[in-house]
Design a protein around this nucleic acid. Structure first.
Lengths: 208, 208
DNA sequence: GTAAAAAATGAATGAGTATTCATTCATATT
DNA sequence: AATATGAATGAATACTCATTCATTTTTTAC
């Protein structure tokens, strides 16, 4: 009885419940769009009652901001892990980071839909902008530094680290858009080939 | 003559009003986001009365779809014009089309904000997806054909037209995102340099 | 085992907003 | 000038949904 009660208990620890609601929020946004997602939808998706979101997040605005922050933090964490785990040279690291954006766990229908939902509102919401900006800066700076190291190593001419960072950053975001809009025709392998094609034409000594 | 002129003027006024409302819609979406734009906002922005949108567009949903269609059509029209007007070779044409996406009349704060607002909802709205898909297909096919011609002309190895089209398509969309999120740090010239840098590394004989 | 605390419920509230429609207004037609 | 017609208004309506809160259920502490 004690054991059963523990596994089937209806209440959950605060953090657990919050996470459950954030997950439900992402599902709803992906399915119905941010504008058409109601707190009732989120609660229903989580199998809980009407007032649950306000209990745990105080307001809808707050829930949405926390959802975005969760996504951004998750991305950063994957990013750092990919960086640490990859080979020692800057080319290894750059490749690992670029490939990260195509990994199914990141380049996932639901998550990408949520990113774009927020980007669509970023213009009018300073909070969203701040969170997105921060993540982008983090990404951009790292990529540019790696590109600079590769350029120095290979003594490449006619190319700047900044340009490479701009290309890679915009390409990965743009690939997400293709994935979102045309999941049928989107092909991870082709996307990867395109990215590698770019890297090998700009850094031929490093990416054959 | 008299009858005809009068008739066309009357219908023209109707189209004029619709266009005025579409413009107001884009302004509102850019300022407040799609989710927070009310029909009252749109009517107010146009200097007209509450019920005006329903009179001309039947419903809010319809207004939004027509707004997206307008944007897509406008883009296609600029695209065709740029294609026609550009130099004869495929490299001239490719450059002209790529540069189009950075032209202030296209890469404009308001319009880009509206594109992203719709992309954020594309997942849940088949109508939006269809319109976006169509535009993308148009773009992609043309770019790929031009890339294929350039590859043939220059006898380039280790590169496919499809890859080039993927890179260019995702890059231009991605650059729009940077422009939207960080208008302060976004730099048209640097974006252009990055695009040209890509083209010259992949097609060195055509883009020095 | 009991009491206090915490978590969760779901009906009620009220603010906001899409839509409707009776009426007014402007212009064209006779 | 008189009439007809489409355009526009804006108050009224109907509805959605975020938020609140009194109540119930579950957990924790003793």
């Amino acid at each position: 009885m004690v054991a059963t009660a523990k596994t089937t208990r209806r209440t959950a620890r605060r953090e657990q419940r919050r996470q459950q609601l954030i997950d439900a929020t992402m599902k709803c946004i992906a399915r119905k769009g941010m504008g058409n997602t109601t707190l009732g939808d989120v609660a229903g998706e989580a199998g809980l009652s009407q007032g649950i979101v306000n209990l745990h997040f105080k307001s809808k605005d707050n829930l949405l901001a926390e959802t975005l922050r969760y996504l951004a933090d998750e991305y950063k964490s994957h990013f750092s892990k990919a960086y640490e785990k990859s080979g020692p040279g800057p080319a290894d690291k750059l490749l690992a980071l670029v490939e990260l954006d195509l990994r199914p766990s990141i380049c996932d229908r639901r998550k990408v839909a949520v990113w774009f939902a927020f980007w669509g509102e970023v213009q009018s919401r300073p909070t969203y902008r701040k969170i997105c900006d921060e993540r982008d800066q983090y990404y951009d700076d790292t990529i540019e530094r790696l590109a600079a190291e590769i350029i120095a190593e290979g003594d490449y001419q006619h190319i700047t680290a900044e340009s490479v960072a701009i290309v890679l950053n915009s390409m990965t975001n743009g690939l997400w858009l293709s994935f979102l809009i045309s999941p049928r025709t989107f092909d991870r392998q082709k996307a990867r080939d395109a990215l590698l094609g770019y890297l090998s034409s700009v850094f031929p000594k490093h990416f054959s």
